[in-house]
Design a protein around this nucleic acid. Structure first.
Lengths: 168, 168
DNA sequence: GTCATGTTGATACCCTGTATCAATTTTGTC
DNA sequence: GACAAAATTGATACAGGGTATCAACATGAC
């Protein structure tokens, strides 16, 4: 059941939202569900040469809208997609290899809710991403070629509160 | 002192980092420091017709690198810049008018630090943005034209923990 | 002044994504 | 199965945001 359920999960979501399960969509979903780490749209485009670029982007957008995948930005602003596995979550992204992992943090949510009282206006959404160097990349820091995913967008790197972790 | 300090703050930062205070840079900084809300790069480009597009983008990048301004993304991924006023901060962005405000939350930082123990790898940076409807926009929800800054990027809008706030 | 270096601006280009629109699929119905 | 209506596709062109190139220019050090 798990196997089957996972395999067709995205397809079920699409159908439940009234979209058709066309062949191109099924192919795209097939590729996406196999991905463990983050991916770029163009990656999918080149992995499915038979499917038009527009269709790939349209489908990615669709899947975002129904919550099947997430789109996030690397530190340098480069977009990256990742399949959603758990309901509500945030992301850690490896700045070196692009691995995207999810994490849940109820405390964080609770805190944000509390924060809403101090913030003028009404909160309609939030984005919390952690940029990390993943365990694998920590190990072979020089053996593997690093992707250019870091950049100097500096989303509060070299933070006071994180300095001791980073500096070590 | 405050007036003067604020006026030349960005320039001082640039000089301190070994960059030249050229005329184009001074003009750009002049425009930026006057901005209270977020802005786009193209906005600056059209406000300074005498300065080349490349120079504007280069200077924005420079100012990012030295921490004078921040670059963040709207829910739909559209980039937006905002001058940094306090040392370490996060942002609230109005999804309707694009107003960017800063907030500090020591609790949040502390919590993230605690979280670092549970997350595999080493945290090198983070990004926390809140998407809001600002008080002004709440008031004249229909009188003013809304910018197209929202989009369906859905960075966890319609969140469980926020539903009660949004839904009201 | 002169020379090395930093900057600029015009241009062309890249990447990510979307609008258009005719051609094709899919679905529901007979 | 055939058919019409509606959804989807793919080719193309285009838009937005940003960067590489490179000759011309400004700057600072000597």
């Amino acid at each position: 059941m798990t196997e089957q359920a996972v395999r067709s999960n995205f397809m079920a979501i699409l159908e439940d939202n009234g979209y058709r399960l066309t062949l191109p969509r099924r192919e795209i979903i097939g590729v996406l569900e196999a991905k463990q780490e983050g991916f770029t749209a163009e990656e999918i485009v080149s992995e499915l040469p038979g499917i038009g670029r527009a269709t790939i982007y349209r489908t990615l957008k669709l899947l975002q809208e129904v919550g099947a995948i997430c789109r996030l930005n690397m530190l340098n602003g480069a977009p990256r997609y990742s399949p959603s596995r758990v309901e509500h979550h945030h992301h850690t992204v490896c700045v070196r290899c692009g691995l995207v992992s999810e994490f849940r943090a109820a405390t964080l949510e609770r805190f944000l809710r509390a924060l809403s009282g101090e913030i003028p206006g009404v909160i309609v959404g939030h984005r919390i991403d952690l940029y990390v160097t993943c365990p694998t990349c920590l190990q072979d820091e020089q053996s593997r070629p690093a992707l250019h995913l870091h950049g100097h967008g500096h989303a509060h790197a070299h933070d006071d509160s994180l300095a001791e972790l980073v500096g070590s």
